[in-house]
Design a protein around this nucleic acid. Structure first.
Ligand SMILES: [Zn+2]
Length: 229
DNA sequence: CGCGTTTGACCCGCGC
DNA sequence: GCGCGGGTCAAACGCG
C-alpha cells in the first residue's frame, strides 16, 4: 500500500498567501514562510476525485482561509492506512527558490513508542497527529520556516530515492518530519510531519513583523477615527 | 568551536 | 527464531 499514499480531492490555492494565512490560524502549520515574490500559478486542478471511505474530506469552493481551517482540524476520525486523509494538491515550486507549496495533508493519530534507549521502558504510547504534504519541486530541501536537523536517511523499498528524517531543533519541540520523493514522479516531494510545534516560528515572525506592525498602526488609526466620530 | 550532515550500526516490530 | 523493513543513534566529518 505504499503506493498512492494520498488520495482525495484536490484543494489548491496560491501558496504564499495561503501559507501565511494558515500559519496565522494554526499554531504550527508546517507551511512555508518565505514570502517571496514568486509568481504562483495554480497547477493543474483536477476534478474532485472520489474520496476513499472514511475520508470525508470535501473541498467545496471556499475561501482559502475556510478551506484551510477545515483542513487543519477535521473532526472526522478516519481509518485508513498510514496517513489517513491525505488530500493531494500539488503546488509548483520554482526551482532555486524556496517558495512554499503545500498539498495534501492528513491527520492521523498514530501510536508511537515514546521510550527509547536506556530505560524507556514505559509503553507510553503517545498519539500524535501526522500531516502529509506533497510538493512539486525540483529542490529537495524546502524551507518551511522551521529549523530542522537531519538525523537519518534510509532507502525504502520500492522507492528509488532515499527518505530523509528530520527533527525540529528546538529543545522544547520534538516534531519530526520525513521527506521522500515519489518513485515515479521524481518531481514530487512528499513531506510527512509528525507532531506539532509548541513554539513560534521565528522566521515566519520575522517575515511577518512588518506586516503586523502596519496592522497595529492601522488599528490605532481606526480607533482614533472612531473616537473622532 | 559550534552546529548540522553523513553514514553505518543498532533496534524493534512483524510476518513467516 | 530468524530475516526483513523501517526508524533512530551517534561517531566522524565538514563548514562557517
Ligand atoms: Zn518545532
Amino acid at each position: 500500500m505504499e503506493n498512492s499514499p494520498l488520495h482525495g480531492g484536490i484543494c489548491q490555492q496560491p501558496n504564499t498567501q495561503l501559507a501565511t494565512a494558515s500559519c496565522l490560524l494554526a499554531p504550527l502549520p508546517p507551511v512555508v514562510a518565505e514570502p517571496q515574490p514568486e509568481q504562483q500559478h495554480a497547477c493543474t486542478d483536477a476534478p474532485p476525485t472520489s474520496l476513499a471511505p472514511g475520508a470525508a474530506m470535501s473541498c467545496p469552493s471556499l475561501p482559502a482561509a475556510a478551506d484551510w481551517a477545515s483542513l487543519l482540524l477535521p473532526p472526522s476520525t478516519s481509518g485508513a492506512s498510514e496517513v489517513d486523509c491525505a488530500v493531494s494538491a500539488v503546488t509548483t515550486v520554482a526551482a532555486g527558490s524556496k517558495a512554499g507549496a503545500t498539498a495534501g495533508e492528513g491527520d492521523n493519530s498514530k501510536t508511537v513508542k515514546a521510550g527509547k534507549q536506556g530505560g524507556g521502558r514505559g509503553k507510553n504510547k503517545v498519539t500524535r497527529p501526522r500531516f502529509a504534504f506533497q510538493t512539486r519541486s525540483e529542490n529537495d530541501i524546502l524551507d518551511d520556516g522551521y529549523r530542522w536537523r537531519k538525523y537519518g536517511q534510509k532507502a525504502v523499498k520500492n522507492t528509488a530515492f532515499p527518505r530523509s528524517y528530520y527533527r525540529c531543533t528546538h529543545h522544547t519541540c520534538d516534531v519530526k518530519k520525513q521527506v521522500q520523493r515519489l518513485a515515479k514522479d521524481t518531481s514530487i516531494v512528499v513531506t510527512t510531519y509528525e507532531g506539532v510545534h509548541n513554539h513560534p516560528c521565528e522566521k515566519l515572525m520575522e517575515a511577518l513583523s512588518p506586516i503586523l506592525k502596519q496592522l497595529q498602526l492601522l488599528s490605532q488609526l481606526q480607533s482614533c477615527t472612531n473616537q473622532l466620530l
